[in-house]
């Protein structure tokens, strides 16, 4: 007896690197996930978060009205679509960043939970399934909270603070936000030994292979990917000149200062420069003072030979880019992980 096979359409990903077949009308987001390709998403496929953008290079239909507010004109012109709203009824070809092929879903447990400052939490996740992770220093994961107090489980992005050489887990730095669903769960509900799941690694923020001197600027939990990169550079016996600026309001906002100063002996030419913008004169602080942008300008008035690595809030990144450009650094050598 013959069985009728359900019709499928072919999705060609990155020029034949992977070809999957899905039922017509299935969203790209769901179809890709069922075939082991996990595109980032925070809203579960409701055209709300805009994280699941893919480039449709063949077989595209115009974007839906629901997609338009989440796509810029240049993105639309370039063929970008939201994977959650793209439901092919014919064969389709898409392009995604190559690193998404190595994204997996992970289960783990909280091995250590520590308060790093009054509003920053350090979480160490020990992997249980699979038991190891491969990533590049500078990348991030998307962690899932559990439902609590009637709130839905949510997905949020966090940079990995641990180095790739420690493949048995990941360390995260999480800053408490007043009304944050995930952060309140992490601070107030999550305990050592609890299960946690995440997907990753995501992102293209990483150290280049060049020999150019590096200028790192970060604030608050923006230190996480920088710390991962620095530990990786130590392991690789990097001999590049590195100047690392860490901006904070006051001494109570500083953390990992001792570990970072230690790298001044662990790396060939490394200097760590913490700077405080609102520390009282009476606080005994003898280090740099002022906005981090002013401190960078004062210490490195000519940035033209450097590569810059920035991680922090959009305001900090934008201000840094403006200053670095004024100090002679071309855009092409400014790399950043903007918290947006």
């Amino acid at each position: 007896m013959e069985t009728a096979q359900a019709p499928t359409v072919a999705i060609d990903i990155n020029g034949g690197k992977k070809i999957i077949r899905v039922k017509p009308g299935t969203s790209l987001l769901a179809g890709c996930a069922r075939n082991g390709l996990f595109l980032p998403s925070a809203c579960g496929g409701n055209a709300r978060c805009g994280y699941c953008k893919v480039k449709v290079v063949g077989g595209a239909t115009p974007p839906l009205a629901a997609e338009l507010p989440l796509l810029s004109e240049s993105e639309i012109a370039a063929g970008m679509r939201l994977a959650c709203q793209t439901k092919p009824v014919g064969d389709l070809a898409i392009a995604v960043p190559d690193e998404l092929f190595s994204v997996k879903r992970f289960s783990g447990k909280i091995a250590r939970k520590t308060l790093v400052t009054y509003d920053i939490l350090g979480l160490s996740i020990e992997l249980t399934n699979p038991k190891t992770i491969e990533f590049t220093a500078g990348q991030y994961i998307q962690a899932k909270s559990m439902s609590y107090l009637g709130r839905d489980a949510v997905l949020r992005d966090f940079s990995i603070a641990s180095p790739p050489s420690d493949s048995s887990g990941v360390d995260l730095l999480i800053r408490r936000t007043k009304n944050g669903i995930f952060t309140r769960w992490a601070f107030d509900v999550l305990k050592e030994g609890d299960a946690i799941s995440f997907s990753g690694p995501y992102g293209a923020f990483r150290a280049s292979e060049s020999a150019a001197p590096m200028l790192m600027v970060c604030g608050s939990t923006g230190l996480a990917p920088i710390w991962s990169i620095l530990q990786d550079l130590v392991r690789k016996k990097c001999n590049r000149t590195i100047r690392c600026f860490f901006g904070a309001l006051s001494q109570k906002d500083l953390f990992m200062v001792e570990e970072l100063h230690k790298l001044e002996t662990g790396l060939a030419d490394f200097k760590f420069i913490p700077a405080l913008s609102s520390e009282p004169e009476s606080g005994g602080w003898t280090g740099e003072r002022g906005l981090i942008t002013e401190v960078v300008r004062r210490n490195v008035p000519d940035c033209s030979r450097f590569e810059a690595y920035l991680c922090g809030s959009p305001g900090m990144i934008n201000a840094c880019i403006a200053v670095l450009t004024q100090c002679g650094l071309p855009d092409a050598r400014i790399f950043y992980d903007k918290f947006a």
Binding site: G50, A65, R156
Partner: peptide, 23 residues
């Protein structure tokens, strides 16, 4: 006093895009 935060939040009204977190 501004405090930055990671991520974006969508408008509760449909088709209005996402907005940077932080306050």
């Amino acid at each position: 006093v501004h405090c930055g935060a990671r991520g974006k939040i969508p408008s509760p009204f449909a088709n209005e895009g996402t907005f940077a977190k932080g306050e």
